[in-house]
Structure formats: C-alpha cells, structure tokens
C-alpha cells in the first residue's frame, strides 16, 4: 500500500479542521474542528508506525495517548464553553470581545454594565450561576438572543 493514501487523507482532514477553526463562530463547532485536526494527526501517526514497522509500536501507542488527551481536552473545553455560556449567554466566538485591544471593552451581548472590566468581571462571576439569571430576570442584564430561548 502506498504511503501517499493515508498521508493525503490526513492532510485534507487537517486542512478541513483549519478551515473549521477559522470560519466557525460557534465554540462547540470550533471544538469539533479541533477534533478533526487531532484525528488527522492520529492517522499520520498510525501510518508512519506501520511504515517503519516500529518494534516498540511508538506510533500506535502515541495515537492512544493522543486520543486520551483529546478526550481530556474536549471535557475541559466543554466545561469552559458552558461557563462562558453561563456568564455571557452566548458562545459565539466572534462576540466574545472582552479581551480585544482595539475595540471597546465588553462583549457585544455580554451585558457588561461596567464597560471595560469584562475580563475581571468574568472571573468574579465565574462561580455564579445565579447572578446573570437574576439580573436577566430583573431586566438589567443581557437578554438572551431569541433563537437561544429554550
């Protein structure tokens, strides 16, 4: 079997992942694209393990390790995404501009009444599920976008 087949498939899969990471706005879709890239790397590892007939099976064992790391990454990433959603009511990565330099501070829909202290407020409010909900109920906080309503 030619080595070209798996490596070309891996290259195409990797570039699809690059496109997804750069072009998607939903944070969960970005995580999915990262998974595509990790799978491309796994395919390369397996293919070169078979190619060099590694006695220690370094490539395949490293593939298993990469899968485990990807699982850990997706768990932590989803926890962070849920935390962002809880605080900001959106996971749109285009609108999370609190750390931007050349824009005004605060997210577009983030509901930062205090203006530029969005990053500090995020840490302070990270433990609170209640605040955004309470203030949203009181009309002082960000209204959830209409398509996000349950």
């Amino acid at each position: 079997m030619h080595l070209v087949y798996p490596t070309v498939v891996a290259a195409l899969l990797f570039s699809l992942g690059v496109y997804g990471v750069l072009a998607r706005r939903n944070a969960i879709l970005v995580l999915m694209s990262v998974e595509l890239m990790l799978n491309a790397v796994n395919l390369n590892l397996v293919a070169f393990d078979i190619r060099f007939r590694d006695r220690l099976h370094g490539g395949q064992v490293l593939t298993l390790f990469t899968i485990v790391i990807a699982a850990a990454e997706i768990g932590l990433g989803l926890a962070i995404v849920l935390l962002v959603y809880r605080n900001r009511r959106t996971i749109d990565v285009d609108r999370l501009r609190a750390l931007s330099e050349h824009e005004t501070g605060g997210d577009e829909t983030g509901g930062d009444e205090t203006g530029g202290t969005g990053a500090d407020g995020a840490i302070g409010r990270a433990t609170a599920a209640g605040p955004v909900r309470e203030t949203a109920a009181a009309g002082a906080g960000p209204e959830p976008r209409p398509e996000e309503a349950p």
Binding site: A128, P131, E134
Partner: peptide
C-alpha cells in the same frame, strides 16, 4: 450600579 455585576447577585 457600578458594583452591581460583581456582587449584587452573589449566590
């Protein structure tokens, strides 16, 4: 109002 997002709704 200025300090409200951080502390007012502390759960």
């Amino acid at each position: 109002a200025g300090t409200r997002p951080g502390g007012a709704a502390r759960p």
